[in-house]
């Protein structure tokens, strides 16, 4: 049973009612098919009403859904021959980031992504998808490796942020993130990043300096979590819902600001309701990006990334 979110409560209740009625009619000697049909029409209308008018805070809930597909889910559904590669070669292996080599529609690629856990045990092992410096350094090592062998890089972004801990500071969290930003800027292969859940601050951006940046319809990308913004701006973290609206963190917001290239549609009710269907949408978007970017020369790829990020910002001159 998938966890229900508050905003979709009416849909779920109506759907349960219909199932109940169907069960009842199959055992009893009454014909309620007209009534059921009416209810199903209503359900459809309600679904459209609710899922087509999702508020920023509703999307935040969907983006954080515990059953939302993670990097490893997409890797399993979309790629073949995946071999995970571990470690940063200087400190350790951070399981909050996974990466490796795989085939995408027959072509070798490097895939890297933040990895949340699906349950408490896995979350502890993966530090809730919040990387330490060695995670970012592993990611960079794999990107450089991809560049050497001339294969495209696909990054999945899904983190609340880089881990704010003592050890992370000691090992240079700032430098690790900063290094990735600068090195990604110069990669001579196509880089595609997709925000699949939460894109939290610098910890997300460290996998995000790409030629194409896509977002799943219900993912978020922000400089700070809505809770953090509310507590800094209004000294009250319970105002997160208002902050989610004010900060403009949803896929349509970022598309409008010219930061995101494409919004990838989600299965009705969110990606967690149909991972297989979601993987198909994802695969199509990735193929479109690879087709476009593989036409560019090495120099054009670097210039393309330069122009893309250079143009972001709003000011008066």
């Amino acid at each position: 049973m998938v966890k229900t979110l508050p905003f979709e409560e009416p849909v779920i209740q109506l759907r349960d009612k219909i199932t109940e009625l169907k069960d009842f009619t199959s055992n009893a000697d009454v014909d309620l098919s007209t009534e059921i049909q009416q209810l199903e029409d209503r359900l459809q209308k309600l679904e459209t009403d609710i899922y087509d008018n999702m508020q920023p805070w509703d999307r935040v809930q969907v983006a954080r859904h515990p059953e939302r597909p993670t990097t490893l889910d997409y890797i399993r559904e979309i790629f073949t021959d995946f071999i995970e590669l571990h470690g940063d070669r200087s400190y350790g292996d951070d399981e909050a980031i996974v990466g490796g080599i795989a085939a995408f529609n027959g072509c070798p690629i490097t895939v890297i992504g933040h990895q949340r856990g699906k349950d408490t045990k896995e979350n502890i092992r993966r530090n809730f998808g919040m990387p330490h410096p060695e995670g970012y350094r592993k990611a960079l090592r794999l990107m450089k490796q991809a560049e050497k062998f001339n294969r495209p890089i696909i990054c999945f972004i899904d983190t609340k942020g880089a881990y704010p801990g003592k050890a992370a500071e000691e090992r240079g969290q700032s430098e690790a993130i900063a290094r990735n930003l600068v090195e990604m800027a110069g990669l001579k292969v196509p880089v595609i990043s997709v925000v699949i859940g939460e894109g939290g601050s610098g910890g997300a951006l460290a996998l995000g300096v790409a030629n194409h940046v896509h977002m799943l319809e219900n993912s978020t990308y922000s400089v700070i979590s809505p809770e953090g913004a509310a507590s800094i701006l209004w000294k009250d973290s319970s105002l997160a819902q208002q902050a989610a609206e004010a900060m403009k963190i949803t896929a349509p917001d970022l598309k409008q600001m010219g930061i995101v290239d494409e919004i990838i549609q989600e299965a009705v009710g969110g990606a967690h309701r149909d991972t297989k269907q979601q993987a198909i949408y994802m695969k199509e978007a990735l193929q479109r990006s690879i087709d476009t970017l593989s036409k560019l020369s090495k120099e054009e790829l670097v210039n393309n990334r330069y122009e893309k990020f250079k143009s972001i910002g709003e000011f008066a001159e």
Binding site: A185, G202, S222, V223, I259
Partner: peptide, 24 residues
């Protein structure tokens, strides 16, 4: 990063980085 400009502020980290990469 400056909160009041939201994700646009975050993206300035990437913007300055692409320029520094070229300089380097």
């Amino acid at each position: 990063a400056r909160m009041q400009e939201g994700v646009l502020s975050l993206m300035q980290m990437a913007k300055t980085s692409v320029a520094l990469n070229r300089h380097s």
